[in-house]
Design a protein around this nucleic acid. Structure first.
Length: 679
DNA sequence: ACTACAACTTAGGATATTCCAA
DNA sequence: TTGGAATATCCTAAGTTGTAGT
């Protein structure tokens, strides 16, 4: 039962026609079909099983890149010679400038009123309303309708920027005297720095990964680095360390937090909002904009996703001396904490970040940036969807081109053609090369031979490719896809004379692939296909699933089904909620119960059947949503105007589709879109 | 052309808050 | 009123892509 309740996720759910043309119109989201007893992609058990030991370093693997002979391919298969002459056709550029033309976006309402005027209007109105109302309205009128202004420069991100700098997490509070670390059975007082690291480990004790060898080794060697000489001399083995008392202490503490009175919680809340008030906003070009992550990341133990080779390493506390501040020259420079100084203060208006530092795990930069509701993020987001819409106009010719590449005499063109086909048809990510310092995950270009299995026929279908690999965040991608004969032949060719751990596409890289795409359409890269296919799927599904005469609840179910189709396409998953089975049974029980009641009390039929209907909708919705995360696509891939237009057209309150945060982020779309907008 | 790096988007899990039925 | 489920928010890891340097 544990296994059987796992839907296949991707496998049978997304059935795309093998055919370059209409790609995703046959997305099926039939809950019954999805329960085929296959393991849920991405579940922990799976990830463990799926762990593939890389027998070669990526450098070694890289050498295999050149392995496929770049000879004339004639003779390898009977179709190879047919298009020897065909040169890569130049696709006409449709030279439309990268800038989105806001006035041409369909459904766009041009507000004639200046924002000044609106402000005055609103303020006037508030006079007679209550205090609460007044505040709300005033806030609203403060909101910056940046989308009503002309497009701003691509390179210069701001002309003035002022902020308070990042918020530093509180210093370490040593443990009380009665709480102790034990080594080899003996209590041992540790130096504060050493003790702090112990608390990181102790807090995680009931997590499964503290039992992993990699985690323990990384932790122990990083911990030893931070010990005093004396401590290092004494503490030789992690297995002799006893953190249980400390662990218990923190469990109790968190219990206490949970049991705080309303008043105590209120105090905490006010403290947080004071912090937000002070550090959570910046002044950008005269507008108060919300910051996304104004709190610096506190120290702790790194836990990457999947089988990460660096799990358990110490993530060090960030000091002011590590932080670079970015703000405008003439602004009030944020003050570093007393007795400290910043690493650097710069005034670079070609970037959007307010502060940055290097994290010590990978040595990569991290940034403090604005909230998605900000102009800087919103405009970029809008632009992204406009690029995806431009792809819509171009996609037919691109599909034609990659199909031609399938029969090219050049190996690299064939590989590129198949790779773009996968990216288009399956919404795979580009798949950059990764080093050995991170989890072994892949995308399209980094697929290895071992990640696909070719089936001449399978389950009554021809030319089936079985994908099985760990993608971003070590989420498993498992899918059986019928592909066109020529693709199948090419794949056979690509894997010939290769070992399982060799690259499937050894003649191409993401950079080359994106370069090709860019020549087809300015601004086109691999990830645009995900946005494009996601939004196209949503639009198509909404058009198909929504009919007149539906109740709002039914329409919402339609919307969620459409949303789900996208999530399945993009392989957005989540762990099935812990108590799913139980709550589902409960829900089913309720449905049954309601049915019985209806039979017994005929008089109440009208009222109760409505109740039943809602429950059933909820049931279906939840079942279908079991392992599907809708949020990501909603937030990142789906042109919000599709949803807004749909809401307006079908009189569905937009609040039913977007929560507060999402309404803030998509304020531009909500404001500008009318019911006729089509993606 | 290749590499390294910087900057930005996308992502799932953890935690906090809200909601709803008993 | 309360406890557990649902939902929202927070957090930060992990991708992609553009660019500068060689």
């Amino acid at each position: 039962m544990k296994q059987s309740d796992r839907p296949s996720g991707v496998s049978s759910a997304v059935q795309c026609e093998a055919g370059g043309g209409g790609t995703h119109e046959d997305v099926k989201v039939d809950p019954d079909e999805r329960n085929d007893g296959q393991q849920k992609p991405g579940s922990p058990e799976i990830n463990n099983n799926k762990e593939k030991t890389r027998s070669k370093s990526s450098k070694q693997r890289h050498n295999h890149k050149e392995r496929t002979a770049d000879v004339k391919l004639c003779g390898e298969d009977e179709n190879l010679c047919e298009s020897v002459q065909v040169k890569k056709r130049r696709v006409k550029d449709e030279e439309s400038p990268e800038k989105h033309d806001k006035n041409q976006s369909s459904g766009r309402k041009r507000k004639k009123t200046s924002s000044e005027h609106e402000k005055a209007e609103k303020n006037k109105k508030t006079k007679k309303d209550g205090d609460q109302e007044k505040k709300k309205k005033a806030e609203e009128s403060d909101k910056w309708k940046w989308w009503e202004e002309g497009k701003s420069s691509d390179t210069q991100k701001w002309s003035s920027l002022e902020h308070k700098g990042p918020y530093f997490p509180p210093e370490y509070e040593p443990l009380p005297d009665n709480i102790c670390f034990y080594y080899d059975g003996q209590p041992m007082k540790l130096s504060p720095a050493t003790e702090e690291i112990v608390t990181f480990y102790a807090k995680m004790l009931d997590h499964e990964y503290t039992s992993k060898e990699v985690f323990q080794n990384n932790f122990f060697s990083d911990w030893k680095e931070e010990m005093t000489k004396e401590e290092r001399k004494l503490i030789k083995m992690l297995s002799k360390c006893d953190f249980s008392q400390i662990h218990k202490y923190f469990v109790e503490k968190s219990e206490e937090r949970k049991n705080m009175t309303k008043e105590e919680k209120q105090v905490l809340k006010e403290e947080a909002s004071r912090l937000m008030e002070e550090y959570g906003f910046c002044l950008l070009d005269g507008h108060r904009e919300k910051i996304g992550n104004f709190k610096l990341e506190p120290p702790g133990l790194f836990r990457g996703r999947g089988e990460h080779p660096k799990m358990g390493k110490l993530k060090k506390r960030i000091q002011p001396e590590d932080v670079t501040i970015n703000c405008s020259q003439d602004s009030k420079i944020p003050a570093p904490p007393a007795g400290h100084h910043w690493k650097r203060v710069q005034h670079d208006n070609t970037v959007t970040w307010l502060a940055s530092w290097l994290e010590n795990i990978h040595g990569r930069p991290k940034y403090i940036m604005l909230n998605p509701s900000s102009k800087l993020k919103g405009e970029k987001d809008w632009q992204k969807y406009e690029t995806a819409r431009r792809l819509k106009m171009k996609v037919d010719s691109i599909r034609k081109q990659y199909r031609r590449d399938w029969t090219s005499r050049e190996m690299k063109s064939r590989q590129r053609g198949v790779a773009i086909y996968f990216i288009d048809k399956l919404a795979l990510r580009a798949g950059n090369e990764k080093d050995d310092e991170s989890a072994d995950t892949v995308g399209c270009c980094s697929l290895r031979v071992e990640h696909i299995t070719l089936h001449r026929r399978l389950d009554g279908q021809e030319h089936v490719v079985e994908f099985d690999f760990l993608g971003k965040d070590s989420i498993r991608y498992y899918n059986k896809v019928p592909v066109e004969k020529q693709v199948f032949k090419n794949l056979k060719l690509f894997i010939k004379h290769k070992d399982p751990e060799d690259d499937l596409f050894d003649r191409i890289t993401t950079v080359k692939l994106n370069k090709t795409l860019n020549e087809c359409m300015p601004g086109l890269t691999a990830k645009v296909f995900r946005t494009f296919n996601a939004s196209t799927t949503l639009q198509d599904q909404l058009n198909k699933l929504t009919t007149g005469g539906m109740t709002v609840e039914e329409k919402i179910l339609s919307y969620n089904r459409a949303n789900r189709a996208v999530a399945i396409l993009c392989n957005h998953q989540r762990a099935a909620p812990k108590t799913f089975e139980k709550s589902m049974q409960l829900l089913q029980e309720k449905v049954r119960h309601t049915i019985i009641i209806i039979i017994i009390i005929l008089k109440a039929v009208q009222r109760l059947s409505e109740q039943l209907k809602k429950l059933q909708l909820q049931e279906t919705d939840r079942e279908e949503n079991k392992v599907i995360a809708l949020g990501t696509s909603k937030l990142n891939y789906l042109d919000p105007r599709i949803s807004v237009a749909w809401c307006k057209k079908h009189q569905v309150p937009v609040e039913k589709i977007y929560n507060k945060t999402q309404r803030d982020k998509f304020a531009w779309a909500i404001d500008m879109t009318d019911e006729n907008f089509q993606f």
